[in-house]
Write a protein that binds this DNA or RNA. Structure first.
Lengths: 203, 203
DNA sequence: AAATTCATGTTGCTGTTGACAACATAGAGC
DNA sequence: GCTCTATGTTGTCAACAGCAACATGAATTT
């Protein structure tokens, strides 16, 4: 069948994969993960209902891909922070920890996805491996800071649990609308810094 | 129509509401929130596909009801801990904080639900109010402990953020299978106690 | 005791969705 | 120019949430 009008949409979208991810991100931030529907995305974009399947075999695959892009961005950000040769091991640890909270605030959709069991349950091994690599990097930095005297008397794993819990919690408070609704008071970036300062600059 | 066999199911289930909640809890723990389907529950229980609607108008209502039962249990648990007249304000604060982590481990499904945006988005005002009441109670205990000298030099809200973040994070590590998969090492209850000790018994 | 009311359950329907299969299109590489 | 292949379309199915109309039987009223 020939084209009916000159300005009608081309048979091939051109960048459907990217467009799907972008729209999905917007939906997640606005209405939550549950609201992401392959067919609704296709409708909005103006392609047929099965077109998205060419790029993501399942709905879970789309969400997992977005989550993965988030983890990749997190690892890159950590890499940049750790690249500075002037930083002490302690400063690197502090910077990487702060970087996670910043990342959660900067990529709320991705942060939501990696905390979502229903998404992570369908994650492939690569994604879990990247997340795990990030955690091991964090742990290694703790070990180095301890070697340089910071909290050297404490068990590494115990410090790791302490930092991870505090960080995960701050990220939650900083980015999750539910917590911001239910909890009293506001949470400013200065306050996050202050809390991290208290934790790191003490013993 | 008369009953075909003596042992066939009665027309009225008897305690469908309770049964629905119990089955849903099992599904959530086993397969996640996403896997909860009113029709599948009905099938498993052996009632018609629309029977659950008599007790929960929507799927979200079922999940919200379960979440609410969790918050209620949390508040009750806090009430019991705080009832002991021999405890100092500091000990009460410490106990209530530990109680949250214990609760998360004891009620993993409810903990998952209240951290799920797609569930909480459809929560009624009562549920949010109960969650908020818990937070305010926690904040009030911090204020009392400060009045009795603990961290009296710090801003109350800052201490609140610190405790809430640490607690939310520990609860996550203690109960969320994703975190337990991705993170290195194990998390024992002793370790949780140790981390809380470090936090409370310092300054 | 008989009648009525009403909470609870059933059957049947609609619209949406994810997933799959068969087919269409067009651009890339030979 | 021809073919291969990535990408998009149409058509279909099963599962699901939600709604409406009807059925049942236990509790309440008369």
């Amino acid at each position: 069948m020939s084209r009916a009008a000159q300005d009608s949409a081309p048979y091939h979208h051109g960048d459907l994969r990217r467009t799907l991810i972008d729209r999905a991100l917007a939906v997640i931030v606005a209405d939550g993960v549950e609201a992401v529907s392959l067919r609704a995305l296709a409708r909005d974009i103006g392609v047929s209902h099965a077109a998205p399947m060419r790029h993501f075999p399942t709905r879970s695959a789309l969400l997992a891909a977005i989550a993965k892009s988030g983890i990749t961005a997190l690892l890159e950000s950590a890499g940049k922070r750790l690249a500075d040769p002037d930083l002490s091991s302690f400063q690197k640890l502090r910077s990487m920890t702060e970087g996670y909270v910043d990342w959660a605030a900067a990529y709320p959709a991705q942060h939501m996805l990696i905390r979502n069991q229903d998404v992570m349950r369908h994650a492939d091994r690569e994604l879990l491996e990247e997340a795990s690599a990030y955690a091991r990097l964090h742990e290694e930095l703790i070990r180095q800071a301890q070697a340089d005297g910071w909290r050297s008397e404490q068990e590494t794993h115990e410090v790791f649990v302490e930092i991870t819990a505090l960080t995960a919690g701050l990220a939650l408070l900083a980015s999750d609308p539910i917590y911001r609704t239910v909890l009293p008071g506001e949470l400013s970036t200065e306050e996050i810094s202050t809390v991290l300062d208290r934790f790191f600059l003490r013993g």
